[in-house]
Design a protein around this nucleic acid. Structure first.
Lengths: 244, 244
DNA sequence: CACCTGAACTTTGCATACAACAACCTGTAT
DNA sequence: ATACAGGTTGTTGTATGCAAAGTTCAGGTG
């Protein structure tokens, strides 16, 4: 693999390069049909999260390909992405293995998530408008209702929606993306206890919304820190059988 | 793409699967030769960082492949990874474009980095041993020396080394990985002003090390926050010509 | 002259093919 | 019986081929 030569297509490579470069973000955002690899990527995450593919399991490309009805190619490309997001480990010349979450790693993830969510709560408190607060209360009510009828899935969904909305309110898309990724992994690690600490959680949410509504940045941050730390505690205190 | 069928290779797929799954992390870590795609991946980051491939430029797979002396395949796989790490944008049916950093995004990245680094500083203060502190002082001295002889590259390198070591001290590898990724992107975004605010920066570093040495978690966090915020300011205050 | 239309060309996305490598298994020697 | 060697099988890594989608440009039309 050489290196010195000054890449041929330098500044204005071909016709697309120049045009696309200049138009930049303003380029027409036509909805294109998602490539197959995208579907494969999503399907694999699903298979991993719902434990069809178990931690440590060796993923043989042709098997996945046949199972999903595609060729190895899109599978390989999806696996690349899955690796950088921490779902699988790619061992050279050996292939992909579903990532094995350790106690330690799960805790580190929760720790990072706590910090990121706290930051997002502070930013949200700075920027939230009245309409946003209204929407937050709406989500809160939905979660509360789900708790009362013991609808676990509903609780989890509402919880995710609320956190996602706070994240969105932060206005920091980079932060939002990171939280999204960390969140999915965290949820995978301790799926079993999701929704366990239902009621308390929603009282804390109400406090958080009040803080955001009052634009009290410090308070919002503090509440979120406590909130996420408690989830972390719930993870540590969970019964042995629930552990990954 | 079907979905219902219970993935065939279920628990113990093939011979490798079972063994590797059970042995887990204890598996022999033989050094395998890195695949080509790895080299391609690194080469591309390099080409992007050093501006051979300019932001917004359309990356044609065959051109990259020929340039690097490989086929399209490894290039495509490398591009997948580069996308999830934010170096390129993959538009369906149109290909890869070098990511175009906006003012806003750069700021958001700096904001996230500040939070992550602060967290890492706090953790480092909790865990640092004497030997670690010694090493920190050594790195500090190296940076200080580089500042005095106006060795920009030396300053940048020492700076990176110091931050990396603090990150390592935090003991949170998930956090470390994230910081690493964010850091590389940040550095790319504002390469031009790297090393600009040399001297001040190193005074702040000394304060940080003292706080870590004293195991003063709060102080270490505060100093790191201020430190990173100042870099952020430097970014905003930089002369117009330096902007991306 | 601006705008639309369609054909030529380019590039991606996916599938297939093949070589290199790793794990496994069998048979033999000790 | 155990340890080792060599063949065998299975899987990955890379290259190539082909169809579909996208872009450009020429020429016609209002």
């Amino acid at each position: 693999m050489n290196q010195p030569t000054p890449f041929p297509g330098d500044v204005t490579t071909g016709r697309r390069g120049s045009r696309a470069a200049l138009s930049g973000a303003a380029a027409k955002r036509v909805e294109r049909p998602a490539p197959l690899r995208q579907a494969v990527y999503e399907a694999l995450i699903d298979l991993i999260v719902n434990r069809t593919l178990q931690p440590g399991q060796h993923l043989v490309e042709v098997e996945l390909a046949e199972y999903l009805g595609v060729s190895r190619q899109p599978v390989r490309e999806a696996l690349q992405r899955l690796q950088t997001e921490g779902w699988v480990d790619l061992r050279p010349a050996q292939g992909a293995f579903v990532h094995m979450p350790t106690e330690e790693e799960a805790d580190q993830l929760l720790s990072v998530r706590a910090v990121l969510e706290t930051h997002s709560a502070r930013l949200a408190a700075e920027r939230a408008e009245e309409a946003d607060v209204d929407h937050l209360w709406e989500l809160q009510a939905r979660g509360q209702a789900a708790v009362e009828v013991n609808d676990i899935d509903g609780v989890v969904a509402a919880n995710a929606a609320l956190h996602a909305f706070v994240t969105k309110l932060s206005g920091n898309t980079v932060l939002a993306e990171m939280i999204g990724m960390v969140d999915r992994r965290v949820r995978w690690y301790y799926t079993p206890i999701a929704g366990r600490r239902g009621a308390d959680s929603w009282i804390e949410h109400a406090d958080l919304i009040r803080a955001i509504s009052a634009k009290d940045v410090e308070l919002a941050g503090t509440i979120m820190t406590q909130h996420t730390d408690r989830t972390r505690q719930a993870y540590h205190d969970r019964p042995r059988g629930d552990r990954a």
